[in-house]
Design a protein around this nucleic acid. Structure first.
Length: 657
DNA sequence: TTAGGGTTAG
């Protein structure tokens, strides 16, 4: 079944019956007024009960008003007050409750200490949380875990690990909660992945020895930690060995694959869960991850099946699911469906919804439209986030809107009070570099107040590739080879630049470096979804059952093109081979095979949608433009950077990409 | 008393 945005289940759900106003079932306003602190109180009034009820109903002020009336507040009363202060982000009131609690002699109570630590952590007052911990004489495991969690989730995860070591020294018996917090601290503690991985492995080993690995929460946290470190096979091993799995464990594993360039395997796992686990029902988070996998594959058919499922289960009322649907349609190139969904959600759009539309327009090459949507977003009262600027600056870059991009970049700090991060500088380098203003791009890097990230140098290198700047490319590579020595893509780009300048000796030198470091170029791969099945192609794909048919079609098309003046762009082939051999390699590029497959196997009027894991090659770009005219077919190719929409012999990028 | 998974970009 195929879902459309107009599915009847999309009609708004009936509103729940109107709730009674807070506390109306407890006390009338008149009764409350009579209980004000200035009024003599009745000895029989149960203030503890009333205060707790007021707190639970969100009426913190009235609860605090009553507190002085109660001579003997109980532990439960203080718990309710602390939780209410945390919920309302009421720092000053929280501190006042804490003072009163101390006066009442509850400062040695480990239960309330746990609640206070949670409250202070929630309010961002870590020193206060630490003080409560220090001043609690009887430190139960709850107290230790509360501080561990507070430190792990704040930007002081190193301190969390120090606390863990202290627990070890003092012989505190850790429980499964301790392990979950400690693992999260490992991820938060280090921006250096190898160090974080060592730490996770160490705690993992510890958990295994103590028998905590079999706990479902610990196993799930381990899956997630390895996922965040990009160690997919470690995550899979933990997941496979879990004695008990629930929907969260399955979702963590699906998300792990979806986020680590394994969208096909993520979908596979999703369907495995649906088929083999009748007791596990996907929830909103599962569907968000599954949609992300469909988006990663640009598998529109799969995405539509999920949309139908989401509607049937009513999960589209959840904003994150709705946003994930918009993103999925955008990444599958279905701009109109994404826009219809976006239009249908007026009033409940958040910054994520807007960002999806801005980046969607950007990647399709509608830069001016992306800027217009950005302005509408600001007008509607939503504050742009750091990601909004990555999206809108990226949109400027794809469309060559240099001056607009510069203006937006300046507004980021001057108007919106956001400090540009490395990724924003990378956008600016890309914007200027693509437009051929490489010296300005290099100047921006020089003036950066923060350390340029690999993305920044990578953007410069990419621009050097487009504009054939050998020396500047070498300079960028001295940084890149140091910062990310194992990223084969940088070596390949440099070799590409040398090859284009016909510096074959230098090409050989870079290839030798790749060999010495045992690095392999990521092979180009393209795929296409036909009748809800995904077919993938690699270069010179001799194992493909239809390869002869595909070749015959491509040879025929190229012959027609040559009559039209087409000259194969053999400079994109990195090897110093003769022209004929280069042409043969060019013809076997995965994206050409996928286009030919689409022509043969899809319906006549259907748009051919192809996805490629790398940047689209220039020769394939020319050939696809021709095919779109010659075969009268719309062809949409999503490469690693953006969309190319081919129609009537023209590409939406207007050859600027 | 406490814990685990997710949406936007690059």
């Amino acid at each position: 079944m195929v879902a459309s945005y107009a599915h009847p289940s999309l009609r708004p759900f009936p509103l729940p019956p109107k709730l009674p106003s807070p506390c109306s079932h407890l006390l009338s306003f008149k009764t409350l007024s009579s209980l004000s602190p200035t009024t003599p109180t009745s000895a029989s009034a149960d203030y503890n009960h009333i205060i707790q009820s007021l707190c639970n109903n969100g009426d913190l002020h009235r609860a605090l008003h009553l507190l002085p009336q109660e001579r003997h507040p109980t532990q439960r009363t203080y718990e309710a007050l602390i939780l209410a202060c945390a919920r309302r982000n009421a720092a000053a009131l929280g501190a006042a409750v804490h003072r009163r609690l101390v006066e009442d002699g509850f400062d040695r109570d480990p239960f309330l200490a746990t609640k206070l630590i949670d409250m202070y952590a929630h309010l961002g007052a870590l020193d206060d949380a630490r003080n409560v911990f220090d001043e609690t004489p009887e430190k139960t495991i709850f107290v230790w875990n509360a501080l561990l969690k507070a430190l792990a989730l704040a930007d002081v995860a190193e301190e969390a690990l120090a606390l863990l070591r202290e627990m070890g020294r003092r012989g505190v018996a850790m429980d499964s909660f301790t392990y979950s917090h400690a693992l999260k601290a490992c991820i938060a503690s280090s921006s250096h992945p190898p160090l974080a991985a060592d730490r996770v492995r160490e705690i993992h080993g510890h958990a295994v020895r103590r028998g905590f690995e079999s706990r479902v929460h610990v196993g799930t946290t381990l899956v997630d930690c390895y996922a965040k470190l990009g160690l997919v096979s470690y995550a899979e091993r933990v997941f496979d060995e879990m004695p008990e799995r629930n929907v969260v464990s399955w979702t963590a594993m699906i998300a792990c694959r979806a986020k680590n360039e394994r969208p096909f395997d993520a979908l596979d796992l999703f369907y495995q869960m649906m088929v083999s686990e009748p007791d596990v029902s996907p929830n909103s988070v599962t569907m968000v991850s599954a949609l992300q996998a469909s988006a990663g594959l640009a598998a529109l058919g799969q995405g539509k099946i999920m949309h139908a499922y989401i509607l049937r289960k009513g999960l589209d009322s959840i904003l994150s699911v709705f946003n994930a649907l918009i993103a999925m349609y955008m990444k599958c190139g279905s701009l109109n469906t994404a826009l219809r969904l976006f239009d249908s959600m007026s009033g409940r759009r958040d910054v994520v919804s807007w960002n999806s539309i801005i980046s969607g327009y950007g990647s399709l090459g509608f830069g001016a439209k992306a800027i217009q949507v950005f302005e509408e977003m600001v007008e509607s009262g939503i504050k742009p986030s750091s990601i909004t600027f990555v999206s809108v600056l990226g949109a400027c870059s794809h469309s060559g809107l240099v001056e607009e991009g510069k203006r937006l970049f300046d507004s980021m700090s001057q108007v919106y009070g956001l400090t540009p991060r490395a990724e924003h500088y990378a956008c600016m380098v890309d914007l200027l570099g693509r437009a051929g203003r490489l010296d300005e791009a290099a100047e921006i890097i020089k003036e950066m107040r923060i350390e340029p990230s690999p993305k920044v140098w990578g953007s410069l290198l990419g621009a050097c590739r487009i504009h054939g700047r050998v020396e500047l490319a070498e300079m960028a590579c001295t940084h890149l080879f140091e910062l990310e020595p194992t990223n084969a893509g940088n070596y390949v780009l440099l070799a590409d630049i040398y090859a284009e300048a016909k510096l074959w000796e230098e090409v050989g030198r870079v290839k030798k470096l790749l060999e010495e470091r045992s690095l392999e170029k990521v092979p180009g791969c393209s795929w296409i979804e036909v009748k809800k099945k995904i077919y993938s192609f690699v270069s010179v794909d001799e194992l493909n059952p239809q390869i002869e048919q595909l070749h015959a079609l491509l040879i025929q098309l190229v012959m027609e093109m040559k009559k039209d003046g087409y000259v194969p762009n053999t400079k994109v082939v990195l090897y110093d081979l003769d022209h004929e051999e280069k042409e043969r390699i060019l013809l076997g590029h995965s994206e050409k095979l996928a286009v030919a497959f689409g022509l043969i196997n899809s319906g006549k009027g259907e748009v051919i949608r192809i996805t490629k894991n790398l940047r689209l090659c220039e020769d394939c770009h020319s050939v696809t433009k021709f095919i779109s005219r010659f075969a009268s077919r719309e062809i949409l190719v999503r490469d690693v950077n953006r969309f190319h929409h081919f129609k009537d012999g023209v590409c939406s990028c207007r050859d600027y990409w």
